[in-house]
């Protein structure tokens, strides 16, 4: 069966909203303008988030054109006629090229997705540029508080799936999934290992699309863009695949000073005896044993 991830977290309404004190001030003063943060940008109108963009998340244009919802040329025409992608989306709405429901839905998807990255912890302070006329426009906007709470909830969701965030940003490489592993996603539960032939947990179809693009070079953000899929959705799949042992982040290459090459006799002395060729068919059993020992 498909591995069942832990329950989706529910927002903690009493959680301190300390993601960006500046953003909270801007919301209180009902500011209009653009907040530029390290990993993304939030567009505010009268203190509400009307648009978000991040280099780590596919934009509305990518989501709409990747699967042919909208012809790329149609987006380009709208973008050329408008100031910024939000206005371009509004032009599309006015033109009737896209159904309102589809555009609203995709707009909200993209807003929460880019907003998640825009509100990620940053090493530099954000900058806010006040803008002239406040204008909320016909597309749905989101209160700052709602975006912050959702972002915190999403962080918790990813953490519960697999607590190592390295896979979010590093190039990903496929791993040999363990035949059976104690379900780490539910650490509180006892490991119920059914008897029977060992086989890796199957991969759900949407995860398969992600796993098929893991090649040692692409990051989750690359894969999201290629699939025309929300980056957060891709992270959910990446963390679940990491938890199931199907992939792992490629460790960053740390340049080390190579030791001087040993002289030939020394080399011969230090080398371990060559490994015998592996012909043991019980390699799966050994892996299960290793996993069981690790799980103790």
């Amino acid at each position: 069966m498909v591995r069942t991830p832990p329950p989706l977290p529910v927002r903690d309404k009493d959680a301190a909203r300390a993601l960006s004190p500046m953003l909270n001030r801007l919301a209180e003063e009902r500011a209009t303008g653009v907040l530029v943060r390290e990993h993304g940008t939030l567009h505010l109108a009268e203190g509400r988030v009307v648009y978000a963009e991040s280099p780590l998340a596919p934009g509305l244009d990518v989501l709409l054109t990747a699967h042919g919802t909208l012809a790329a040329a149609a987006w380009q025409r709208a973008a050329a006629a408008a100031e910024g992608p939000l206005r371009a989306a509004e032009l599309l709405l006015e033109s009737g090229l896209l159904p309102a429901g589809a555009l609203e839905l995709c707009h909200l998807d993209a807003l929460y997705d880019a907003g998640y990255f825009a509100l990620a912890p940053s090493s530099t302070p954000g900058r806010f540029h006040y803008d002239g006329a406040p204008r909320t426009g016909p597309l749905p906007s989101v209160p700052v508080v709602a975006l912050e709470r959702e972002t915190l909830r999403r962080r918790l969701q990813l953490h519960r799936l697999w607590p190592d965030p390295a896979a979010d940003t590093a190039p990903l490489i496929r791993a040999d999934p363990p035949a059976r592993r104690r379900p780490r996603e539910n650490p509180g539960q006892p490991a119920a290992e059914p008897a029977g032939p060992a086989r890796p947990a199957p991969v759900a179809p949407r995860q398969r699309a992600v796993l098929d693009r893991v090649d040692g070079t692409r990051t989750a953000a690359h894969i999201a863009r290629e699939l025309g899929r929300q980056a957060f959705h891709t992270l959910v799949d990446v963390r679940r695949l990491a938890a199931a042992g199907h992939l792992r982040p490629l460790a960053p290459v740390v340049p080390v000073l190579a030791p001087p090459p040993p002289t030939a006799p020394e080399q011969a002395r230090n080398l371990p005896p060559p490994l015998p060729p592996v012909t043991d068919p019980d390699i799966a059993l050994l892996k299960r044993l290793r996993d069981a020992l690790e799980a103790l």
Binding site: L93, E94, S95, G96, L98, P99, A100, G101, E104, L105, L108, P138, P140
Partner: peptide, 12 residues
């Protein structure tokens, strides 16, 4: 009223 299509999410 206007040219754009309905329904949106709220109308639905």
């Amino acid at each position: 009223e206007g040219s754009h299509a309905v329904p949106g999410i709220d109308e639905c």
